[in-house]
Simulated scan of single mutants.
Amino acid sequence: MTLRVGRIPFLVCAPFFFNSVGRENEFSEVAFVDGPPSVHSAGLKDGSIHLSPASSITFAQKPGAFVLSPSLCTSCSFEVRSVKLFSRYPIEELSDKRIRMTSQSKTSVTLLRILLENRYGLRPEYLPGLAAESTDDACLLIGDLALEENERHRFAYSYDLGTLWQEWQGLPFVFGAWLISKDALSARLRPVLDDYMVRLETGIREFRKNPSQALDVWLAKYPVNLPRPLIEDYFSVLDYHFTDERKQSLSLFFKLAAQMGLVESAPPIEFLE
């Protein structure tokens, strides 16, 4: 049986996966499946993949189905840069305005709703889609699309969701967590899973030692339309350590989402042992 890993082709995930690009045959019992966080969240829930650094809200959408890596996540120090609200109006004026919401990540959509409705007391109109149309007042973009929009300067205002959350709650936000289906804890798959998690940690250390070389590999497979210095600087704001503070933040996020009815309940977090 093969361990199926959801690989996200966004720049933010380069440290997780650069050492598998072009070397998939070295992971003999692992199959990589490329797709955005929303696709992998669905795959985790329907059992078509076993693990992925997927949208963190997925854990709360199917309570009891997953465990989390106790050491790895996708977080930031205040700004994340790649999860942003771009707006033609100041954020305080967005009630009754049209906001185009990315379909690529339920976590970012949930976080924006919590911020707009709980922090600012706003009630905008939410519309699905990947990018703003001419009639939209604002749009939420994630990943490489958000990084590229940063460089276009087409909107009068932009807001980093990582910063908005930390200013409000005093905690760094956890955008992605390594969700592991409990199916992967079977006697057959557990040794493969344990080996993969060790290689994952090793890959992150290798990325930090030589990010330029790692990015050469990544960008050859998943190019982005950004200047190379900006790409390398992007990783100065990212942090992949799942600290106690970040675990506290994730639990709070689930609690607020449940209070708003965006998930049924706020489940206790379970970790891979």
Rank of each mutant, 00 (worst) to 15 (best):
G129W: 03
G129S: 10
L130M: 09
L130I: 05
L130W: 04
L130A: 10
A131L: 07
A131R: 08
A131S: 14
A131Y: 04
A131N: 08
A131M: 09
A132F: 01
A132M: 02
A132S: 11
A132V: 02
A132R: 01
E133A: 11
E133I: 05
E133Q: 12
E133L: 14
E133K: 08
E133R: 10
S134D: 10
S134M: 06
S134P: 03
S134L: 04
S134Y: 06
T135I: 08
T135Y: 13
D136R: 01
D136I: 00
D137T: 04
A138L: 01
C139N: 05
C139A: 15
L140P: 02
L140R: 01
L141P: 00
L141F: 05
L141K: 04
L141T: 01
I142P: 01
I142Y: 02
I142M: 09
I142C: 08
I142E: 07
I142Q: 04
G143T: 00
G143I: 00
G143Q: 00
G143S: 02
G143R: 00
G143N: 00
D144I: 02
D144T: 06
D144S: 05
D144K: 01
D144W: 00
L145Y: 08
L145P: 00
L145T: 02
A146R: 02
A146G: 04
L147Q: 04
L147M: 03
E148K: 06
E148Y: 05
E148D: 03
E148I: 07
E148V: 09
E149S: 07
E149G: 10
E149Y: 13
E149T: 09
N150L: 15
N150C: 12
N150T: 10
E151P: 03
R152F: 12
H153Q: 14
H153R: 14
H153Y: 13
R154V: 09
R154G: 14
R154Q: 14
F155P: 05
F155T: 07
A156Q: 14
A156D: 15
A156Y: 09
A156H: 15
A156R: 15
A156I: 06
A156N: 14
Y157R: 13
Y157A: 11
S158N: 14
S158E: 15
S158Q: 15
S158R: 15
S158M: 13
S158V: 12
Y159R: 10
Y159I: 11
D160M: 13
D160G: 12
D160V: 12
D160W: 07
L161Y: 11
L161C: 13
L161V: 13
L161H: 12
L161Q: 11
G162N: 09
G162E: 07
G162T: 10
G162Q: 07
G162H: 06
T163H: 12
T163I: 02
T163Y: 10
T163L: 13
T163D: 12
L164Q: 11
L164C: 10
Q166G: 07
Q166P: 08
Q166H: 14
Q166T: 13
E167W: 01
E167I: 03
E167S: 07
E167F: 03
E167P: 03
W168A: 06
W168L: 07
W168P: 05
